[in-house]
Amino acid sequence: MIKHILVSDPTLRDGSHAVAHQITAQQIALYAEAADKAGVPIVEVGHGNGLGASSMQVGLSLEDDVTMLETARKYLAKSKLGIHVIPGFATIKRDLTRAIDIGVDVIRIASHCTEADITQRHLGFVRERGKEAYGVLMMSHMASAAILVEEAQKMELYGAEGIIIMDSAGAYLPSDVVEKITALVDGLKVPVGFHAHNNLGMATANSIAAIESGAKILDGTARGFGAGAGNAQLEVLVAVLERMGFFTGIDLYKMLDASDIADKMVIPTIPVIKSESIISGLSGVFSGFAKHVTRISKEYNVDQRDVYRELGKRKVVGGQEDIIIEVVMDLVRNKK
């Protein structure tokens, strides 16, 4: 029996974190066309924090949402166009309606792992408009398996056609993935997915642990382009899945070509595991904080590793970037 895995590629969304949201329309066009030729099922596009998120707080996009989505739509003939949506950043009346009118096919509605309640209206609206709707639980390492199941069941009730948990901090080991994915598969009627980050070098291993535990959806990016130490490397995932006998519908050679294009034309620096990435993963800190922590720490001559440790202690999550400066100033005062 053929084992099918649905792959979603957020290179042009999660990768935006790695370049401070400065991806150009031309880069979107180049990669979207290459990913489409490779047969990537879903290509996710937009600001790193999703639709409507461009702001001083989390970072201003070089291109606006309309430009990014309209550009990608032109170059995606076979691949579906996907977006990441966090209620609070994205409004239904303005942002979601406009995105659907542009031609978005797949919409992932995301919340912090214990706040699924905020996704009800957005999920309901997406289903009413006849688009594919998925629920996403971010920073999932911060909740127990039992709590994740409860939150995922809410999203399922609201109309989500699948639930993806994100290892937003790159904090998981394979045993953590097995525990949580198994619980979700057992507790839900809809498919379960996994989005990995590579802070501890576990992104591919964790992704494989997820599918071996029953997950049907995986995320991966070209060259691992993404926040912090990056995501699961898509071309590696495709090769490993092929070797394991799973079917993704992605042409490996053409995916390698797409990754080469991303390397040369989109990604200024390939993500690597740096010392601060490791501490970020161990501390359970959102990978999207990396650029902000680096900049502010250098400005005030504070050790980034201490900043990550303190952010972890305070259980800070995405959208609370303003607390980074508060932590840095506290560390400065404590040094005196």
Rank of each mutant, 00 (worst) to 15 (best):
K3E: 05
K3C: 03
L6Y: 07
L12Y: 11
V19I: 06
H21I: 02
T24K: 07
G48R: 07
N49V: 13
N49H: 14
G52M: 08
A53C: 15
S54L: 07
S55T: 03
Q57V: 15
V58E: 05
V58I: 11
G59L: 03
T67I: 14
T67G: 10
A77H: 11
A77W: 11
K80S: 09
I83P: 14
G88K: 02
K93E: 15
R98F: 13
A99I: 07
D101V: 11
D101T: 09
G103P: 05
I107M: 05
I109A: 10
C113R: 02
T114D: 15
E115N: 02
A116L: 06
R121A: 15
L123F: 06
G124E: 02
G124P: 04
F125C: 04
V126I: 02
R127E: 13
V136K: 07
H141N: 14
A143P: 01
S144M: 06
S144T: 03
A145D: 02
V149N: 00
A152M: 00
A152C: 01
Q153S: 09
L157H: 12
L157G: 09
A160C: 03
A160I: 04
G162W: 07
G162L: 01
I164L: 08
I165A: 06
M166I: 06
M166S: 14
M166C: 13
S168T: 03
S168C: 06
A169G: 03
A169E: 00
A171N: 01
P174W: 03
P174L: 04
V177I: 00
V178S: 06
A183N: 14
V185G: 02
G187F: 13
G193A: 12
F194L: 02
H195C: 01
H197G: 00
N198M: 02
T204D: 04
T204K: 00
S207D: 04
A210Y: 06
E212Y: 12
S213V: 05
G214N: 11
A215P: 12
L218A: 13
G220H: 10
A222D: 04
G226T: 13
A227I: 06
G228H: 03
A232E: 06
A232L: 15
R243C: 10
M244C: 13
L252W: 02
Y253F: 05
K254M: 15
L256Q: 08
I261C: 09
A262S: 11
K264E: 07
V266R: 09
P268Q: 01
T269I: 13
I270Q: 14
V272Q: 15
S275P: 10
S275C: 10
S275N: 15
E276V: 11
S277N: 11
I279Y: 03
G281L: 00
G281Q: 08
G281I: 00
G284I: 00
S287H: 08
S287T: 06
G288T: 00
F289Y: 05
F289L: 03
A290C: 10
A290M: 12
K291G: 08
T294N: 05
K298M: 09
R305L: 04
V307P: 13
R309S: 12
R309P: 12
G312T: 00
R314C: 12
R314F: 12
V316D: 01
Q320C: 12
E321S: 01
D322H: 14
D322E: 15
V327Y: 01
V332Q: 05
R333N: 04
N334Q: 13
K336F: 12
K336R: 08
